[in-house]
Design a protein around this nucleic acid. Structure first.
Length: 282
DNA sequence: CTAAACCTGTTG
DNA sequence: CAACAGGTTTAG
């Protein structure tokens, strides 16, 4: 489900809903979601209070007052919701519960059971969690350097779309925003990264930053099932130019948007605005 | 690098 | 019934 903008909106919602709550017990019906097992989670978190929630790329970091951090990745379908009372009716696809001492309950829902939670010592997450150890810069002007991006892009022969989906290159871009950033930059998703000019790479860098910021501001994209921790859908799906729009006219030139596969991912683009440039990579 | 795996539901 | 879905890891 979620790319960086959606995860950021989940983070904001959760921060309002659960910071200050103290864990009484944790249960699950699908142990694989909890790396190390539910017993380990109970041993480490029972009696601990949530002090804050951070985000890095598409990972949520729940901070506890006992020096522990719960690292949570929603993968394709993970969602959180808060039941004000643990007796509240069960939700579909509900797999993990964090019951708090005030009788409220944080519920983790995941239709495909792809999401994962891992418990680590606060501060160690960037070295202990493989996905975080390799995480590239956050897509903000202060952290994402255009020249460094160009240098990376310049060395890769893979399709440019695959390169921007690589979380070690830039944090948080997923399938929707990859396609959208490339349309905004008038770049073909299959274009070998190394053939991009410096100007094209800089343009793409700027569009990634702008697009993710806009998506955060609009509450994320809900094309399938995304809702934030308050159950709200985003509004960004109305601002998309190519994703999930195959067969409809391009907003710039009216050419029909097409869908292909790039690196095994469904990929949407305008063949007129985003032509494949024939260039030699040396 | 590409393909498969992890899962289940929805869509054509 | 087959293909596909916001992602990442692991096997080949």
């Amino acid at each position: 489900m979620p790319e960086l903008p959606e995860v950021e909106n989940v983070r904001r919602g959760l921060a309002h809903l659960i910071v200050g709550k103290t864990v009484q017990t944790i249960t699950t019906d699908w142990e694989k979601i909890l790396i190390g097992g539910v017993q380990h989670f109970n041993q480490q978190l029972t009696g601990a209070t949530i002090t804050g929630i951070d985000r890095r790329g598409k990972y949520l970091l729940l901070r506890f007052d006992n020096g522990k951090t719960l690292v949570s990745h929603l993968r394709m379908e993970g969602k959180y919701q808060l039941a004000l009372n643990k007796q509240d009716p069960p939700a579909r696809f509900w797999h993990v519960s964090f019951t708090f001492t005030d009788a409220s309950q944080l519920r983790y829902l995941d239709m495909r059971k792809f999401g994962r939670m891992q418990l680590v010592a606060t501060g160690s997450e960037e070295t202990v969690v493989p996905g975080l150890a390799k995480m590239g810069p956050e897509p903000t002007p202060a952290t994402f350097d255009a020249e460094a991006f160009y240098q990376t892009v310049h060395k890769r022969k893979a399709p440019i779309k695959s390169v921007i989906l690589d979380q070690s290159v830039v944090a948080g871009v997923g399938n929707i925003y990859a396609d959208e950033s490339l349309w905004l930059s008038r770049l073909n998703p299959a274009q070998p990264a190394a053939t991009l000019t410096r100007k094209e790479a800089f343009q793409l860098h700027d569009q990634i930053i702008a697009e993710l910021a806009k998506a955060i501001r609009l509450g994320g994209t809900s094309v399938h099932s995304f809702v934030d921790a308050d159950g709200h859908r985003g509004a960004m799906q109305d601002q998309l130019h190519v994703y999930d729009r195959e067969g409809t006219p391009c907003d710039r030139c009216q050419t029909t948007i097409v869908k292909i596969k790039v690196g095994q991912r469904g990929t949407h683009y305008c063949p007129q605005c985003q032509p494949l440039r024939k260039r030699k990579l040396k």
